[in-house]
């Protein structure tokens, strides 16, 4: 076990995390994975703590995943979907955060459509903030569970080749994955039509190609992103079927790739657009395992930020 002490009360992204910190979250997650395999899937680690899911964007899988993780830690969970809340009346983010803090909640898990929202909230409240996705910026727990899954499947991250395929420009999953994977020593390639590759992505450590066969060639794993037709306004996208023809992952495409290539997707899948159904349900796909690992990783994250915040509060009391 490493000598690392986890000191962060928030998890806002992977960009600022050290390699050791990422590895620490993942090794802690291994212990939590075991909890989900018990008959009584509960430990009292966060008993009496309140976790608030504050989701400004609709989400089922991430929200439910965080809820299950928090409940397995014995925490109380409140879900706020802002469409039906006072946010509709114009309440600011900071006010919302402070109100939640006044309820003596301990952790806010937030998804927001503005990049940087989680960072801003964390600056203005003393409770812990876990970023469940902010705009196009980061989705750290998704990348962590992706890496956790890869580690399980391939035994290591150092030196492996991972390709991320999809709308890189607008993808927080892509950014978090690039940070996490490169910090752990993997070689990352991003692949998308040129207009969906943001400038300067090479400076983040990724290689770039717009040829999906090139991206698949020799890759140990491929992370297929969701094509977000509902998000971009500017119609810069090719037709859905055209995307499938040029970038969709099919069994034929995989034939030219490594036999045991690991196929991942953050979900939900657009069958027939990012990948064919055969691939989604096929032997190389670990999509459902990602979901299971998501619980363990999120339990680990919630546990660690809660402990760090406890320690910070204790030190403030004695000072």
């Amino acid at each position: 076990m490493s000598e690392l002490i986890w000191e962060r009360k928030d998890l806002l992204g992977l960009e600022d995390l050290s390699r050791e910190e990422i590895e620490f979250i993942l090794s802690t997650a291994e212990s939590f994975k075991e909890v989900s395999s018990r008959e009584i899937k509960k430990v009292p680690a966060l008993r009496g703590k309140t976790v608030v899911n504050l989701f400004y964007e609709p989400s089922t899988r991430t929200r439910v995943s965080f809820e299950v993780a928090a409940k397995r830690l014995s925490a109380d969970v409140i879900n706020i979907a802002t469409e039906t809340s006072s946010v509709k009346k114009g309440e600011t983010l900071i006010d919302t955060g402070r109100n939640i803090e006044a309820l003596k909640a301990d952790i806010i898990v937030m998804r927001h459509n503005y990049s940087g929202a989680a960072a801003m909230l964390a600056r203005h409240v003393n409770l812990s903030v876990v970023n469940a996705g902010d705009g196009w910026h980061e989705h750290p727990t998704q990348a962590l569970l992706d890496i956790f899954t890869l580690k399980e499947k391939l035994g290591k991250i150092e030196g492996i080749k991972v390709s991320v395929i999809g709308d890189i420009a607008h993808s927080r999953v892509a950014r978090s994955n690039i940070w996490g994977l490169t910090k752990l020593g993997a070689k990352v390639t991003v692949c998308a039509p040129k207009i969906l590759i943001p400038p300067g992505i090479e400076d983040m450590g990724a290689q770039v190609t717009d040829d999906v066969d090139e991206a698949l060639h020799n890759a140990d794993a491929v992370n297929v992103l969701r094509m977000q037709f509902e998000r971009d306004e500017s119609n810069a996208f090719p037709q859905q079927l055209e995307y499938f023809k040029n970038y969709g992952i099919t069994e034929e495409r995989l034939e030219k790739a490594k036999k045991n290539i690991v196929v991942m997707h953050p979900g939900p899948i657009n069958r027939g657009i990012e990948m064919s159904s055969e691939v989604a349900d096929g032997a190389n796909s670990v999509i459902l395992e990602q979901v299971t690992n998501g619980i363990a990783v999120r339990m680990s994250v919630l546990f660690l930020v809660a402990q760090a915040n406890e320690f910070i509060k204790k030190n403030e009391d004695t000072n």
Partner: peptide, 13 residues
């Protein structure tokens, strides 16, 4: 600025 900042922060450049 379109470039390093907009890409890393996930913002329009």
């Amino acid at each position: 600025n379109l470039g390093l900042t907009s890409t890393r922060l996930g913002l329009k450049g």
